[in-house]
Design a protein around this nucleic acid. Structure first.
Lengths: 392, 392
DNA sequence: CCCTATTTTGAATCCTTTG
DNA sequence: ACAAAGGATTCAAAATAGG
């Protein structure tokens, strides 16, 4: 029997536009929790319908009896039935099954995130590769406050590993919000090692007796970085092992749709209540950092058509080593190098001038103005802002 | 044909006592490089004779085409034949074969370290588990200066992964120098995430043309931490993929025996010359740190790891009344006071020397430089600024 | 010699759209 | 499908060059 727990808040919070509304979407039950076995539930969903999967599968911890702290108190370890497997073979078969099911529901441009520890992550990673997923990064979550090693027989296990993979070999077309990640990291590229505290305090779900609802609840900050890095507002995020609902709660807050699958009714119920209480961020707070890649393309010729630059104008590079003449059709003619191959696009001409294979002509070529040399890219910016004004 | 390259310096530097002398030891060719295929060479060695294996196998990078930097310069990729495999299956078969061969030569109490990237480490880790090795930790080497992601399509790949495993399930009896690691880490447990620069500068081996001898030479600081953490002086350290000889050079410096296996004659020859030039540290610099639970906080070891101060260096106070020897694990050994309790952190050693209860070792101990005595605190400032740069 | 500016380089699975 | 073209993209540290 399938129980679909719809989230009322998610519906109320939905914004206009088909891509942002909740509910059934081509057979995909948006913004809801499917209670049941993840492989069975995944197989009911339409193929190629999900943008991002985040999976926190059982770690298969294989703990050897109970662990005590130096003061003889007992460590509350993960000993739930769902984390037990008879053998590595059994764990591999389970991993293979859910990965294949995930693969089917993923869009061709979709990506998968999996988190694990050394107990299981090597098996998951190898299986991913065997199934022709394409690893994009492995990410290390460094914990600011890990559990110490009580016996003093190993290094403090202070991290967990995430794998980020595209659905298909050579994966192209996936979402990576490079500029946003860079901006969030002091304007240098975001690295593969992330630092976050473990989930505790108010964020940690507790039952009426004050016991933690789920033994391995992940911090929202970790999931938020994942969604902000590799999905867009309105995307569909699926979590096949929803647990306490962190993925869904963060997805809702960040204006992404979610589909959660959870077998355990206690977890599913706690997740539903948690998600209902989430207030989505306003659109303005979700606007992504401007991406040069996604900006509309402008043909150099259109600058001429708009009168921003006249045919016959001479362009130079920043150090005035090369010169090129602007022609009426939007091509450049190199002044210095005579003969064939001296005419071409701004990019081709820049490459030819320097003897390189490639060149971004927008930033290479400059125009003499009253205030000195300026890159022709500044003219492109003028066109883009004019287009933006006209569109409103 | 087997060529055994014996290292003369290693013989001359050897100390009295069977466990520290070089040469054939029950069939184990100590302190030498075996030139040949690692599986063939391993199978010739006596079983259960090695304490520690460090392995840096081919990563199977599977690079697609050439990559250029934004300035159009070409990235010098690892495209050597030894890194190419036909398929994951072929790589797995190779991995299985060398792991089994390593397993045979390891003592029952021996441990194995393997380093890799996401291209291969998941397969290595899964195979380790399949072969009944027992994973103790996975360790993340965070690079202070990784190569950036030039196309802005992924997170900067800023780390590599190491797996530390015992030979047998439930592994017992292995060496872990807990106290030394803790003392080297500001008196808190050493974590599973380590920060080191990549190998460059003077440490990087270059040929007569100034080209790097080996494309993937590892930093000595990384190997030193491994040997200091998980081996004892006099132990036998084996590297089945010796390459430029980092493992052997560090082992010799730290008073461990080494056995290196390398197929490529150019690499083997470069390694031999490198190892010959290594001066082993004096015994006094190697004795293990005392198990003092309440040792004072120090970060002194990081100066050693970063090469700002060499093990074996003599420190004095500002008026040159007391002297102490710097040891590889970051502790000091007082020269004047014989007997027990003369080894400890820089603070403890300073207090002991003066007969006081406490002492700030950073300002007490000085280093002779060309410009006179300088407090070691001036070196800490260097590390602090580096760490501040690397921290998030 | 020093100080500053520029160039080089490192285990990398590194693009997208149009025709 | 494939080929061609547009045009977007780098951080830390060491080595080298210039003043």
């Amino acid at each position: 029997m399938k129980l679909v727990v719809r989230n009322g808040e998610a519906r109320r919070a939905s914004r206009p536009g088909a891509s942002r509304s909740s509910g059934l979407n081509g057979g995909l039950p948006l913004d809801s929790i499917l209670q049941g076995d993840c492989i069975a539930e995944l197989s009911r969903l339409p193929a190629h319908s999900v943008d991002l999967v985040f999976a926190d599968p059982p770690y298969n911890l294989q703990l050897q009896g109970e662990l005590k702290r130096p003061d003889d108190s007992r460590v509350d370890a993960v000993d739930d039935a769902w984390d037990k497997f008879e053998s590595f073979q059994a764990y591999d078969a389970f991993t293979r099954a859910w990965l294949l099911a995930v693969r089917r529901v993923l869009k061709p441009t979709g990506t998968l995130w999996v988190i694990g520890s050394y107990h299981n992550i090597f098996r998951v990673g190898a299986m991913l590769q065997d199934l022709d997923f394409w690893i994009l990064n492995d990410i290390v979550w460094r914990k600011t406050n890990p559990m110490p090693n009580f016996r003093g027989r190993r290094f403090t296990n202070a991290h967990e590993t995430l794998i980020w993979a595209a659905r298909d070999p050579g994966g192209k077309g996936y979402t990576f919000n490079y500029e946003a990640m860079k901006a969030a990291n002091e304007d240098v590229q975001m690295r593969s090692d992330w630092l976050f505290p473990i989930c505790s305090g108010h964020e940690r779900l507790k039952d009426d007796d004050g016991h933690k609802v789920h033994p391995t609840q992940k911090p929202e900050a970790l999931i938020a970085r994942i969604l902000l890095a590799s999905s867009k507002p309105g995307d569909v995020v699926l979590d096949p092992f929803l647990g306490s609902g962190t993925t869904a709660a963060v997805a809702k807050r960040l204006g992404r749709h979610f589909v959660g699958i959870e077998r355990d009714s206690t977890y599913a119920e706690a997740a539903r209540a948690r998600i209902d209480a989430v207030q989505p961020l306003p659109d303005a707070a979700l606007a992504s950092a401007p991406s040069a890649r996604e900006a509309p393309r402008i043909a150099f010729a259109s600058l001429i058509e708009r009168g921003l630059i006249a045919p016959g104008t001479m362009l130079t590079d920043a150090k005035s080593r090369y010169r090129a003449l602007v022609r009426a059709d939007g091509t450049l003619s190199l002044e210095t190098a005579p003969g064939l191959g001296t005419v071409g696009s701004i990019h081709r001409a820049g490459a030819l001038a320097q003897g390189l294979d490639a060149c971004n002509g927008w930033t290479f070529w400059h125009l003499e103005t009253g205030e000195g040399l300026r890159p022709i890219d500044s003219l492109r910016a003028v066109v883009r802002s004019e287009m933006a004004m006209a569109a409103e």
